[in-house]
């Protein structure tokens, strides 16, 4: 049994935690931003898939790694705009539209991928982001290899989390977005533009989702294959509830989830013979459901979430 505890204190586990958490941080923050403005974005799974594909393809075609990240963000924003036009401007069901965006974005990414890369034995690869050791800090014992020897995208994810936490809590823009999600009528009465704010929030949030997907193909792995997002988008939607719609807690939730996932992977290596590996793979999904059950009652949902806003209509 003590081995189980020993694994918890290995550098290997903890340096994998931030790596596993990175796409979840991007995705959760993106979904959180949309929901804070009052719109559920179930397009996340497909947007992450498209981000993963387009980021990889950009680099595969000779683009720079950062160009890949930018392409993923831009495509994410475009799908976000599609979601926004349908749910905000037309006020259509956010559930069904989001699922439609997911189905469309993922099937389109498979189609484009197959057009660009014909079927072959092993999927082609690109040279992914290398870890960047922060000078001095990476020499610290334990913290150095776990916190300060990550890929640039992981540092970016942490920076975005802090920035979003600051913007949402401390700036007029953040207040406006939150107000739109709580009471768009009041926001309009204050001279704000709820429609514009919602569209902006969804596009920005979806861009983050796209970057989260690109991390998978440009840093975590080095190739693209269909179904590689593996429900991470849905986990992010669950993490938003877990975070009670706060960026700082979203960061915490993603890291906790990744710790569990990393631990599960190591247990799998340890007990792989005795226990079927599928049981371990199920754990993260079961954990998400459990977290939802525990948190949903306490959660203070943005009051106008999933309520379309039409000017002059009550």
């Amino acid at each position: 049994m003590s081995e189980l505890v020993d694994i918890l204190f290995t550098v290997g586990l903890w340096s994998s935690v931030l790596r596993i958490a990175t796409p979840l941080i991007f995705g959760t923050l993106g979904a959180l931003l949309c929901e804070r403005a009052g719109v559920l974005n179930l397009g996340i799974e497909g947007i992450m898939t498209f981000g993963a594909m387009v980021g990889w393809l950009t680099v595969y075609q000779g683009g720079d790694l950062w160009a890949g990240v930018f392409a993923a963000a831009a495509c994410g924003a475009v799908f976000g705009l599609l979601h926004a036009l349908m749910t905000v401007n037309l006020g259509l069901s956010q559930h069904v539209t989001g699922l439609g965006v997911t189905l469309f974005a993922s099937s389109l990414s498979y189609y484009i991928f197959r057009l660009a890369v014909p079927v072959q034995g092993t999927p082609p690869t690109v040279e992914p982001f290398q870890t960047y050791a922060v000078p001095l800090l990476s020499d610290l014992p334990f913290l150095g290899p776990t916190l300060f020897s990550q890929t640039p995208l992981t540092y970016l994810a942490l920076a975005v989390a802090l920035l979003l936490a600051y913007v949402m809590a401390r700036t007029p823009l953040g207040l406006a977005v939150r107000m739109t999600g709580e009471n768009p009528h009041a926001a309009e009465a204050q001279g704000l533009n709820p429609i514009g704010l919602r569209i902006g929030a969804i596009c920005a949030g979806s861009a983050l989702m796209g970057v989260g997907g690109a991390f998978l193909t440009l840093a975590a792995f080095n190739s693209f294959f269909p179904t590689m997002v593996q429900g991470r988008g849905w986990v992010c939607i669950a993490l938003v509830v877990f975070s009670t719609w706060r960026p700082s807690r979203a960061l915490l939730g993603a890291v906790l989830f990744a710790l569990f996932d990393g631990y599960q992977l190591r247990l799998q290596a340890h007990f792989g013979k005795a226990v079927p590996y599928q049981l371990f793979l199920m754990m993260p999904y079961i954990l998400s459901i459990v977290a939802l059950v525990i948190m949903s009652r306490r959660a203070r949902v943005p009051q106008a979430l999933m309520k379309p806003y039409r000017r002059g209509e009550r």
Partner: peptide, 25 residues
């Protein structure tokens, strides 16, 4: 518990598929 069934039913898809894989192996 006020848990949105969209997310739970979606996550259950992954759990069930893993369970099927476990059963048939």
């Amino acid at each position: 518990f006020g848990v949105d069934e969209v997310v739970t039913t979606l996550l259950l898809n992954f759990i069930v598929l893993l369970f099927v894989s476990l059963a048939i192996e």
